[in-house]
Amino acid sequence: MNSYLDFYQHLGFSLSLLVLLTFLLAGTVKGVIGLGLPTVSMGLLGLAMLPPQAAALLLVPSTVTNLWQLAFGGALRALVRRLWPMLVLIVLGTGLGTWWLGLGAGHSMTRALGAALLLYALSGLLLPPLRMPAGWEHWLGPLCGLLTGMVTAATGVFVIPAVPYLQALGLQRNELVQALGLSFTVSTLALGAGLFWRGAVGNAELGASFLALLPALAGMLLGQWLRQIISAVVFKRVFFIGLGLLGLHLLIAG
């Protein structure tokens, strides 16, 4: 336990508070709209630390909350049968991206993170509901998986292009939420494996990530409560606007 706390002592009080509040907010967003924990946490933590450090803190909260999301919906077996080519390519793409690009520590990776956030926000705000033509799924799914894995390896964000692709499949709401949980779980585990391979995650980082799980779970519970009293559509619009501004800041400032 001391080694876990040593990590936060090394960060200092202000940065540790930022970590806890970030995961509380990120969990709240995920509780309301079913996604957003990795994007919010990577974006806000990217303001104060390098992407590999932020991604290491993300591993446990993202894995546990995605497994939580994955457990409900009743369509897991059917979704695995349908989406396995995409999921396999996410793993391969993340591995290839880790070997080729890696989650670097320079300003270019911070700008890449900003670009990914901005692109995701613009797609959420501007793109109309997509419907994929019949016959495209067999090749577009693996392609989206490969690209998602590459983006994950470079930025720690695994929503582009996986989320627009899954939304275009015409799934029922509960199926879509479960499909997103499945995709995010595979992406998080693949990212974690890449970070371990590059030596970016040790016992201290993993322990600190376990502690970050507490505010993330509290945020999810808060978000699920808020979902009953606020408009999810309005909340999602505000989320994308805020995410876009954050991505633009990271892209410009680096």
Rank of each mutant, 00 (worst) to 15 (best):
M1Y: 15
M1Q: 08
M1A: 10
M1F: 13
N2M: 13
Y4A: 08
L5C: 08
F7H: 00
Q9T: 03
G12N: 00
F13P: 07
L20P: 01
L20W: 05
L21R: 02
L24V: 12
L24H: 03
L25M: 13
G27S: 05
G27M: 15
G27E: 09
V29Q: 09
G31N: 10
G31P: 00
G34Q: 11
L35A: 11
L35G: 11
T39A: 10
S41D: 07
S41W: 12
G43P: 02
L44C: 07
L45W: 10
G46M: 04
G46E: 09
G46P: 06
M49H: 08
P51W: 06
P51A: 00
A56K: 09
L57S: 11
L58Q: 10
L59I: 02
N66T: 03
L67S: 15
A71L: 06
A71F: 14
F72R: 12
G74A: 02
A75K: 04
L76M: 09
L79G: 07
V80E: 09
W84H: 14
W84A: 04
M86V: 11
L87D: 13
L87R: 03
L89D: 04
I90E: 01
L92S: 05
G93Y: 02
T94E: 00
G95T: 10
L103P: 07
G104R: 01
A105S: 15
G106Q: 05
G106A: 15
T110M: 07
G114K: 05
L117D: 03
L119W: 11
S123V: 09
L127E: 02
L127D: 05
P129E: 07
R131N: 04
M132E: 09
A134Q: 12
A134E: 15
G135L: 13
H138I: 14
G145I: 06
G145F: 09
L147Q: 06
L147V: 14
T148W: 06
T148C: 05
V151T: 06
T152I: 08
T152W: 01
A154G: 10
F158H: 11
A162K: 02
V163S: 10
Y165S: 01
L166R: 04
Q167R: 14
Q167H: 06
A168K: 07
A168E: 08
A168F: 10
L169Y: 05
L169H: 13
L169S: 07
G170Q: 11
Q178P: 03
F184A: 13
F184S: 12
T185H: 02
T185M: 00
S187L: 06
T188F: 02
L189V: 13
A190K: 14
L191W: 08
L191P: 09
G192Y: 06
R198N: 09
R198D: 05
V201D: 00
A204C: 09
E205S: 14
G207A: 13
G207T: 08
A208W: 00
L214H: 06
L214F: 12
P215W: 05
A218M: 15
A218K: 00
M220Y: 06
M220L: 12
G223C: 10
G223V: 12
G223F: 05
Q224E: 14
R227Q: 15
R227I: 03
I230R: 15
S231C: 14
A232C: 14
F235I: 15
R237W: 07
R237H: 13
I241C: 14
I241A: 13
G247R: 00
L248H: 03
L250P: 12
I252N: 01
I252H: 12
